[in-house]
Design a protein around this nucleic acid. Structure first.
Lengths: 227, 227
DNA sequence: CGGGTTCTTGACTATCTTCAACGAAAGTGG
DNA sequence: CCACTTTCGTTGAAGATAGTCAAGAACCCG
């Protein structure tokens, strides 16, 4: 999952559409804390996230970290480059994953439809990452946090009548490393949104979106709408 | 071209390797200033850059801009998502391009090897973008500019004995929008590198790398090595 | 050569980070 | 299950980095 800015050009359904009858399910389960793979590992399989949440990270030698993305249901993780993984990947929330062989990505010989679907997922990934660039490079801290919450609310929020509830299974440090901020700044931004009554913080890992429209406006820099 | 941090795991040859005998060349030429496509256009063809430089950009409604990447020889541009282009693309330096049909990317029926090559290019693109995230999210202005120059020197620099010469056909604003900075900050960072005798600025669009090792060190935050 | 754009530099400001302290939450072992 | 310890999150104050605004210099183009 990246923070992508919805545009009119294209439909917002930005993630993997599993084909219903892909034969017998061969899903596997991973517990929170488990690692799927490390940077430099040879890629054996890709995974479609069916449930749970994954975390993909990349490290700089001096310890600086970037969370590349969070893997939510509908996402495909593990695309190889030169046959290798280029991130670490671990599990934040117990997950069920559908593995696909690397061969299925690289050749359509066995299952042309799957090949096609995986290729499309890779191309969507590129597009989503481009959007994410815009956010990392050009948005303020407040806008980044608002964007992040908006995307989560849209993709995995629970509808509660007027509000939406989202779970934040990742730490503040994860959010910070995802958005290119510090934990303190993330915390302050959340507090700010809370004080503006745009969100309510039920507990550390649960946020209620009180005014989705205001949050969306903030995420594009219309700070006027907050009032 | 993205700003990727070389890691020991994988070979540094990170771009498209054209197969020598891909039949008759059907290259096309574009003049500086020409647009290849706009965001929202249907993707007809991908292009392999043979010579020249392209610029891929994405805009926010309020005018903020992100330069997604620069297209240098060896790069493939124009990967579709849902069949559409998700950036604008124009020409900075007169370019020769090898077009490939979108069909060649999406199916291996006609030319399995080309299909394979294009898929690999897409996967490399994902990996390179992940590196770029780390730079956008976690590097200081000085590190970003140093990284940018290092990558350019490595990929398209001219060897001049002890030094390397690079051409910067793009404006300072382009560099800024690529690195998530302002033109002023880019300018100041270059001045700083010049004063530290790491680079020399031959003219606005030509930079000499006097101490490549120091530049590389700076790009990873070892500011000690500058002295 | 002249006019407009781009680049550089300076002074000032804003935003975000850093450092530090405290409180809340979660994990551990008796 | 509770006390203890450690980690995580929030808040404040101070500082640094990058942005903004403004002016002049360099460059480009007709």
């Amino acid at each position: 999952m990246y923070v992508t800015i919805p545009t009119d050009h294209y439909a917002p359904s930005y993630h993997f559409k599993p084909r219903v009858s892909r034969g017998k399910s061969t899903e596997v389960s991973f517990k929170a804390g488990a690692y799927l793979y490390f940077e430099g590992d040879a890629v054996e399989r890709l995974y479609e996230v069916k449930s749970g949440v994954l975390r993909l990270t990349r490290l700089l030698e001096d310890g600086r970290r970037q969370v590349i993305s969070f893997g939510y249901p509908g996402d495909i993780v593990g695309f190889p480059a030169s046959g290798l993984h280029h991130t670490d990947c671990d599990v934040l929330v117990d997950a069920r994953l559908q593995p696909y062989s690397r061969a299925a990505l690289e050749s359509g010989a066995n299952d042309p439809q799957l090949h096609q679907d995986l290729l499309e997922a890779a191309l969507r990934e590129i597009s989503a990452m481009q959007d994410h660039f815009l956010m990392l490079g050009r948005k303020s801290a407040a806008e980044k946090v608002a964007s992040f919450l908006s995307v989560l609310a849209e993709r995995v929020g629970d509808d509660m009548g007027n509000y939406r509830k989202i779970s934040l299974p990742m730490s503040r440090a994860d959010i910070a490393d995802f958005l290119g901020l510090t934990t303190e700044t993330v915390s302050r931004s959340l507090t700010q949104l809370r004080k503006a009554k745009v969100i309510a913080i039920e507990n550390i890992h649960t946020v209620i979106i009180l005014r989705p429209q205001a949050l969306l406006a903030l995420s594009d820099g219309h700070q006027d709408m907050v009032a």
